[in-house]
Lab assay of single mutants.
Amino acid sequence: PQVPQCKALYAYDAQDTDELSFNANDIIDIIKEDPSGWWTGRLRGKQGLFPNNYVTKI
């Protein structure tokens, strides 16, 4: 099955070790969508939390 993905609308710099940094237009694999607004994703071999208001699902 296809892994859900999202595209970064803005760059995000991780504020903690469990967060994921990314650049605008990066494509992130979505591991888990949480109602809190912090999703778990994977990018370039690293997994971490990121704010879903920085991305749009594709």
Score class of each variant (00 low, 15 high):
Pro1Ser: 14
Gln2Val: 09
Gln2Trp: 11
Gln2Asp: 14
Gln2His: 08
Gln2Thr: 10
Gln5Leu: 10
Gln5Ile: 12
Cys6Glu: 02
Cys6Gly: 14
Lys7His: 11
Ala8Trp: 00
Ala8Asn: 01
Ala8Thr: 04
Ala8Tyr: 02
Leu9Asp: 04
Leu9Arg: 06
Tyr10Asp: 07
Ala11Ser: 14
Tyr12Arg: 11
Tyr12Ala: 02
Asp13Met: 10
Ala14Val: 01
Ala14Arg: 05
Ala14Asn: 04
Ala14Gln: 06
Gln15Gly: 10
Gln15Asn: 15
Gln15Arg: 13
Gln15Met: 13
Gln15Phe: 06
Asp16Phe: 09
Asp16Tyr: 11
Thr17Asp: 14
Thr17His: 10
Thr17Phe: 07
Asp18Phe: 08
Asp18Val: 07
Asp18Leu: 12
Glu19Gln: 11
Leu20Tyr: 01
Leu20Thr: 00
Ser21Phe: 00
Ser21Trp: 04
Ser21Tyr: 02
Phe22Cys: 01
Phe22Ser: 02
Phe22Lys: 02
Asn23Asp: 13
Asn23Val: 13
Asn23Ile: 12
Ala24Thr: 14
Ala24Asp: 04
Asn25Cys: 11
Asn25Leu: 08
Asp26Lys: 00
Asp26Ser: 04
Asp26Glu: 14
Asp26Asn: 03
Ile27Cys: 07
Ile27Gly: 01
Ile27Asp: 03
Ile27Phe: 07
Asp29Gly: 04
Asp29Thr: 12
Ile30Asn: 01
Ile31Gly: 03
Ile31Leu: 14
Ile31Tyr: 07
Lys32Ala: 13
Asp34Lys: 04
Pro35Glu: 14
Ser36Leu: 06
Ser36Pro: 01
Gly37Ile: 04
Trp38Met: 14
Trp39Asn: 05
Trp39Leu: 04
Thr40Pro: 00
Thr40Gln: 12
Gly41Tyr: 01
Gly41Leu: 04
Arg42Ile: 05
Arg42Phe: 09
Leu43Ala: 11
Leu43Asp: 01
Leu43His: 15
Leu43Asn: 06
Arg44Ser: 12
Arg44Pro: 04
Arg44Asn: 15
Arg44Ala: 12
Gly45Ala: 06
Gly45Pro: 00
Gly45Ile: 03
Lys46Gly: 05
Lys46Cys: 11
Gln47Leu: 09
Gln47Asp: 05
Leu49Gly: 10
Leu49Gln: 10
Leu49Pro: 03
Phe50Trp: 00
Phe50Ala: 01
Pro51Asn: 13
Pro51Val: 00
Pro51Glu: 03
Asn52Glu: 15
Asn52Cys: 04
Asn53Thr: 07
Asn53Arg: 14
Asn53Trp: 10
Tyr54Ile: 06
Tyr54Met: 10
Tyr54Asn: 03
Tyr54Ser: 08
Val55Trp: 03
Val55Gln: 00
Val55His: 03
Val55Phe: 03
Thr56His: 15
Thr56Ile: 07
Thr56Trp: 11
Lys57Pro: 08
Ile58Asn: 06
